[in-house]
Design a protein around this nucleic acid. Sequence first.
DNA 1: TTGCAAAACGGGGTGGTCCTCCATATCGTA
DNA 2: TACGATATGGAGGACCACCCCGTTTTGCAA
Lengths: 215, 215
Amino acid sequence: MTQGSAASVPAGRSMRADARRNRDRILAAAETAVAEHGAEASLEEIARHAGVGSATLHRHFPSRQALLEAVFHDRVEILCAKARDLAASPDPGSALVTWLRAVGAHAASNRGLAASLMRGARDGDSTLGTTCHTMIIDSGGELLTRARQAHAVRPDVAIADLLKLVNAISLAAEQETAGAAETDRLLTLALDGVRPQGVPVTGPARTRGGGSRNT
Amino acid sequence: MTQGSAASVPAGRSMRADARRNRDRILAAAETAVAEHGAEASLEEIARHAGVGSATLHRHFPSRQALLEAVFHDRVEILCAKARDLAASPDPGSALVTWLRAVGAHAASNRGLAASLMRGARDGDSTLGTTCHTMIIDSGGELLTRARQAHAVRPDVAIADLLKLVNAISLAAEQETAGAAETDRLLTLALDGVRPQGVPVTGPARTRGGGSRNT
DNA sequence: TTGCAAAACGGGGTGGTCCTCCATATCGTA
DNA sequence: TACGATATGGAGGACCACCCCGTTTTGCAA
């Protein structure tokens, strides 16, 4: 079911039993390795730990990116589902923020996720399937559109901007020894700049006057 | 003395002529290589291109980080000098923002700078000299303190937060094929959250509201 | 100028990475 | 059961960071 995940290989239903078994083993090993060493984990070691040859790993996942996407596919789907839920929220502004923070939280607790989400169809290797990047972009785009219609965000902000922001922060926090709490703090900080005129997300509409006037 | 840059090696006054010559060559080659391939440039190739053996490179710069710091040392100093200038500004709030954007601009136009600034004394290898990280933190801290005294920034924001934000964005923009303009746009967006009028997303209870008497 | 010890050098080795070929083993089916 | 398609993994090539150690260069002092 869910394992239609295959983001890299013919990988359809017609997969030999042993192939699927190895694929799952690789994925499990990769999950562990990535959690421990981040997105730069050694592929060789993943293969070793999965008990398969390196060639097998490469056949299943032609690129590191493909492997990462498979590893994170389920998590990304959870985020997309969450976006769908939130799209029905009566408060599109805070729905968007809630979702972005959820993305940040996931990225913070899954080393490498941020990096994976960042790299989109960049290298043109995406033709094989929907990448994490586009999945997330699509899901978030919906939320942003609604938030914009509700005038809860600046009109000049794109979903790509927001996700880049979220991922950038997660990535940065990942490199340092910062906890999830700090990541969220930074994120909150950054997201405050997204509202138009400083309309508080959670509270009554407060106008942020001249804005720069103070400084 | 500017070239006291040596962030990695005894590197003092008593340096043999050939050693200094090689050091400079390596630095020049590294500058080119990093500009072209980013912070992950091959050290071997840098040594080759500099016309020295790889051992020599490693003697002068025991780690990649040490090399990067030496490469960016001058640029970081420029930023620190700018911070000193801006510290005298009558408008501490915009001085801080101006400086942060300058940091962002530098990071955007120097591949690897952001990553270099990010990694602080992290690995404990810093005992050899003042790292880019701490130099920048110190310089920016001054600006932030003044801005805070002028109530131009939230009191709960640390300079490390702000720099992390700036660097995160630069890093993200660096990975994608984004131009400097986009980087600045994202940065401006994020920095808007720093001004005190904004109500924190998470803390509705927080009554800093008094500050915005306007409108 | 010459001699010499200390300093710097760099070739080559070690052990690691990613990735590819192709002879072999395994699977699913007729 | 037999066979062809499919999947496998070890060996090997190209690259990398980093280190050991015999050799060369330098600067100073006689």
